[in-house]
């Protein structure tokens, strides 16, 4: 029994070795092809660029672990961006602005959670509606025009450094660590795997499945909020179109990381490798001056290959 479990575990982390290998490979090949790739400046860039997609992907992992999906995160980024822009333009304290943004995003999370967990909407449909509503709210709130952000402390969230490390990277690390601990070392975290694996069985054994589902959407929305703050600070403005399409990049990272869209199987480390790989690849292709149209083709192929390897390794188990 024990041995069997180990073997299963080994099988399930096998595709992650493949991911690590590919990440190392990209790094290796790139350090030959581009003289600037391995410079600390470029590494700083890569991780700062990764942090946007990374934080959303971490939140998205919770939702996808349940077999659900959250398409509304990009729109939440937009709403947070205009709310911050407007309030900062009126001279409000940056910390108060962040708290208000957090509250706004939680409203979106609760809205999604209510539709899915309590009103039994399909997650795809519910969050698609929230996406449309959210984008509309952002445009209506701002009348489609961007706000200018001048608050230096707020701008530091996206542009500042602690020592040599950009603040967005520190936030990314913090989010990863906190979520990793929650998911892997708390009972609450294990519920996500239980509910995602078999909702009925989890409910019968006493797990409050609706609350778990609700909290997944709230976590996802909070992550989107953090990204909204970083992004607005980075571009020094509150843009109603901010975050357009970010949900898809995040889902791609989660998928590459081996989390099953059916729920129950997956890991945060996989997601982390996923977004690091996407970030490395897009930085590499930019450094190599590859036409942006082809970059998208490469990214799509990467998803197919990664998921295929993942499926195959799970197929071998049976």
């Amino acid at each position: 029994m024990n041995l069997n479990l180990n073997r299963q575990e080994f099988k399930s982390i096998l595709p992650r070795f493949a991911l690590v290998a590919v990440v190392l490979l990209i790094v290796g090949v790139m350090s030959f092809l581009s003289p600037v790739f391995m410079t600390s400046k470029n590494m700083t860039n890569i991780f700062r660029q990764i942090s946007i997609n990374g934080i959303i992907a971490v939140g998205m992992t919770f939702v996808i672990l349940l077999g659900d999906i959250d398409l509304s995160v990009g729109a939440v980024v937009g709403v947070v961006s205009v709310v911050c822009g407007n309030l900062l333009e009126q001279g409000m304290n940056w910390f108060a602005v962040c708290l208000i943004a957090l509250a706004v995003s939680i409203v979106f999370g609760v809205f999604n959670g209510t539709l899915v967990a309590y009103l039994n909407f399909q997650p795809f449909v519910a969050t698609l509606a929230t996406l449309t509503i959210g984008r509309g709210v952002a445009l209506a709130y701002s009348d489609g025009r961007p706000y200018i952000i001048n608050n230096p402390i707020f701008k530091a969230i996206g542009q500042g450094y602690v020592g040599k490390v950009p603040i967005p990277v520190i936030i990314l690390l913090a989010v990863c660590v906190i979520c990793y601990v929650i998911l892997n070392y708390t009972t609450f975290g294990r519920y996500f795997f239980a509910v995602g694996g078999n909702k009925n069985a989890a409910r019968l054994s006493g797990v409050k499945t609706k609350k778990v589902e609700m909290s997944a959407y709230i976590i996802s929305a909070i992550c989107a909020c953090i990204v909204g703050l970083i992004l607005s600070a980075r571009i020094s403005s509150g843009q109603p179109n901010a975050g357009d399409g970010y949900e898809l990049d995040a889902i791609a990272a989660v998928a590459i990381g081996g989390t099953s869209m059916n729920g129950g199987v997956g890991s945060l480390t996989g997601t982390m490798l996923g977004f690091v790989m996407i970030g490395l690849l897009s930085n590499s292709m930019n450094l190599l001056n590859i036409n942006s149209f082809y970059q998208q083709i490469v990214k799509g192929c990467l998803i197919i290959i990664a998921v295929y390897v993942d499926m195959k390794s799970k197929g071998d188990k049976k």
Binding site: P15, L25, S284, L288, Y308, V309
Partner: peptide
């Protein structure tokens, strides 16, 4: 075995893409 072969193919694809794309520069 299959997985290992796939990984190999994946790596070759990545190298090929990067090297090929480097092109004239």
């Amino acid at each position: 075995m299959k997985v290992r072969r796939l990984i190999a193919i994946m790596m070759i694809c990545c190298v090929a893409t990067l090297v090929f794309a480097q092109g004239g520069s």
